[in-house]
Design a protein around this nucleic acid. Structure first.
Length: 387
DNA sequence: GAATTCTGCGCATAGAACCT
DNA sequence: AGGTTCTATGCGCAGAATTC
């Protein structure tokens, strides 16, 4: 629609459109034998060759088959590890909105099912991953946005360095390139930062919390801890829920329908600066002539030695048991110190036993909670938070 | 050539988490 | 406490592809 075309090169990683300049035949595309099958595939290295740049479209067309699941998994991992939001990433790297980024990352389609246009974001992601410096650049942009926000709001810049500013407390230590390179090994968080998956409360949990709220809108610490324990939630989650549920923040909340959105906010922020500190040109300009892993062929054997975020590119992604992002994570250890006295169920098959047992326990527990809450509410009896 | 289907994406919003 | 940020998701639109 009216949004800037994704092909208008919001990408700053030397992905400038070069339609007027393409020389496909002489690009030295690194058409090397595929490590697995000897299949000749083009590489993405040409993107970083100023002398013979390729347009993103050409690049997509020439790109080898990419493992979209692995790419999105890695991108999510990097974004999470570095506290980089999907909005910033989408707008600056992919030229897409946050919602589209979320959709792409959570439900990537297999490469072979994508059209050329549909493949484009994945190629951009791969390119972005290839150079660890890009993470730093995005982090820098985030800081700039933060500063701009603070300036707008308070008319002053945050004092002190960003690293010790409270507003950036959650950012992990600036990664050394070497550390970033360590990302190349999957599933490692290079900065020792625990990942914090988003909590999605189940219907039963919400129901229990709602009833708890009706009985006690301002629960004591003790109550919160008990609720957290019984619902297998973190106390902070319970606190946040109560906080968000109170009418003050969500008009109409706590009535029946649960939290409503408070004032909208992002659009104001975006309004005041549609491209808040997001200047692809300057971003690109800041990218020193880093002849990093961008130059490395996606499929070339040398990729293995690349210090960057090079992903393995599956020639047959669909056959490689795609990593479904929706696969449930194994229950985190220690998350289940149930206070209830439910004895462990009899032995089940190893795979089922843990999750189904947990589920059963949780359901029973929740039913118990709801039942007691209802009884308490009906009798108007003093709540005793014993489940 | 019209109708239908597919695909990619933006917009709006819910709600959890975070910041001041 | 109030406000903001962030992610997930539903809905709808536009354009391309396909079918009739």
């Amino acid at each position: 629609q009216s949004h800037p075309s994704p092909l208008a090169e919001p990408v700053s990683l030397s992905l400038e459109s070069s339609k007027e300049n393409q020389q496909p035949e002489s690009l030295g595309l690194g058409l090397g034998p595929h490590p697995d099958g000897g299949k000749s595939t083009p590489s993405l290295m040409a993107l970083h060759q100023p002398a013979n740049p390729l347009g993103i479209q050409e690049l997509v067309a020439m790109s080898p088959e990419l493992d979209t699941y692995a790419i999105t998994k890695k991108v999510k991992e990097v974004l999470t590890d570095n506290n980089l939001g999907q909005r910033l990433f989408g707008e600056t790297i992919l030229g897409l909105t946050q919602g589209s980024v979320s959709d792409l990352l959570s439900r990537p389609k297999p490469w072979h099912k994508l059209s050329l246009k549909g493949r484009e974001p994945f190629v951009r992601m791969q390119l972005w991953l290839n150079d660890p410096h890009n993470v730093d650049k995005l982090r820098a942009m985030k800081k700039m946005e933060k500063k701009a926000y603070l300036k707008r709001r308070y008319g002053l810049l945050s004092t002190g360095s960003d690293s010790d500013s409270p507003s950036t407390r959650s950012e992990c230590v600036s990664p050394a390139p070497a550390a970033a390179a360590a990302l190349a090994s999957l599933d490692l968080c290079p900065y020792g930062q625990a990942k914090k998956p988003r909590v999605v409360l189940g219907a039963e949990e919400k129901e229990a919390l709602r009833k708890a709220y009706l009985l006690e809108p301002y629960p004591s610490q003790n109550t919160i801890e008990m609720l957290a324990s019984q619902l297998h939630l973190k106390t902070n989650t319970v606190i946040n829920w109560f906080h968000n549920y109170r009418p003050g923040l969500y008009p109409g909340a706590a009535a029946t329908d649960g939290p409503q959105r408070a004032g909208q906010s992002r659009h104001e922020a975006e309004e005041s600066g549609k491209s808040p500190a997001v200047d692809p040109v300057s971003f690109k300009a800041s990218s020193e002539p880093c002849r990093s892993s961008l130059e490395v062929s996606l499929n070339s054997p040398s990729a293995a030695s690349s210090p960057g975020l090079m992903m393995s590119v599956s020639p047959v992604p669909s056959s490689s048991a795609p990593i479904s992002p929706t696969l449930p994570n194994p229950p985190s250890s220690g998350a289940n110190h149930s206070l209830d006295a439910n004895p462990p169920p009899p032995f089940q098959s190893p795979k089922l036993s843990r999750s189904s047992q947990r589920r059963t326990e949780k359901m029973a527990n929740l039913n118990n909670i709801i039942h007691r809450l209802e009884r308490a509410a009906n009798r108007e009896e003093t709540l005793e938070w014993e489940f």
